[in-house]
Design a protein around this nucleic acid. Structure first.
Lengths: 188, 188
DNA sequence: ACAACAAACGAACGGTCGTGCTTTTTTCTT
DNA sequence: AAGAAAAAAGCACGACCGTTCGTTTGTTGT
């Protein structure tokens, strides 16, 4: 018997390469040495599978990026940790095709439905984590009191997206250095 | 008879919504009131269609963004024009699903082949246009002499990607204001 | 030992995919 | 107006899609 966790683990890896839409029940089943119908029984529709893939990836993301960063001192060190751990995440072996959320964002941005809705919320949450961290930094006096935390979160995510683009599509060896440079320039 | 230009026009619009992979010969044919095989005859494989869609979109991009901006005075005004026209482009009616290149970038970043190669080159060219414009600005004395033009191009594209994400996935009404704010903060 | 249960299977369904063939229709040239 | 060339249509193919169904297998509880 195969555990649901193991299925989702493989599914996340696969979806990071081919997208949530390109993730197919047949190939995923074959990948797990399972019959199509046997796998299908675990979830009861492809849409349900996609959503659970998102949830699983989100849980992994919290474990790999958010929670460890929260262990850092609030303010700038915590923000820096969030950023560095996101870079690791986007290159980590369980995500061989790059960050699943980045791929899904452009894939689903025009396809209404529960999957898109869930992704939207997850991304809002992520931006919220960044903005909240920044606000804590303002309270600590690390950043000017009139700074805009939501704008910072937006801009920082832009740095991450630019890294993803340079690293994965352009295969630019300088991508990481560029991202770090952009991060430093962003801190007020 | 239907002109190749008209076919590609629709194909670009369709692909901007469903991606280059999601663009299907059947739906495109139906969309054009054409038989599948009749349409297929124009191109001789799906891959060829995808590449020509990229080429057509690139030609439109040059017309809508690059060429008009080159008519502006070199340096900062030209960069500003590039940026503003890119914002228009990403919202323009012929691209109802957002910028095709942004969608294709995450879709193809893990799928080797001629389509990916072509897209890679087009994106390098685009970053090159930005960097060159920035260098002209340095010559004009608009920017510090020790600035890094390639880094600027990378960062500016990050601003654009963040806008795309906020506007299209999150449907954030402030996306445009955020993008403009980020642009101003980026200019050295 | 036996019954209850869930997990996995194999086969099949209606669809759609990309891609070849052959035939009809339209367009262009003389 | 006639014939050549190009465009579109029609049809069929094998492959894969998500999904359903009935059956087999293996585990668990009594």
């Amino acid at each position: 018997m195969i555990t649901r966790q193991a299925v989702l683990e493989r599914a996340v890896a696969l979806a990071s390469r081919v997208g949530l839409g390109g993730l197919t029940i047949g190939t995923l089943a074959e990948d797990l040495d399972l019959s199509k119908s046997g796998l299908f029984g675990h979830f009861h529709s492809k849409e349900a599978l996609q959503i659970q893939v998102l949830e699983h990836a989100a849980a992994k993301f919290v474990d790999a990026v958010v929670r460890p960063a929260l262990a850092q001192p609030r303010g700038e060190p915590r923000l820096r940790s969030l950023f560095e751990r996101w870079l690791d995440w986007a290159r980590s072996s369980p995500m061989p095709g790059g960050c699943l959320f980045v791929a899904a964002a452009t894939e689903l941005d025009d396809r209404p439905g529960p999957v898109r809705d869930r992704l939207q919320q997850l991304q809002r949450d992520w931006l919220g984590v960044i903005a909240t961290s920044f606000r804590k930094g303002m309270e600590e006096g690390h950043f000017p009191a009139d700074a805009d935390a939501d704008q910072f979160a937006h801009d920082l995510y832009g740095v991450m997206l630019a890294y993803h683009h340079a690293h994965r599509l352009l295969r630019d060896p300088k991508a990481e250095a560029r991202a770090r440079h952009a991060f430093e320039a962003l801190l007020p």
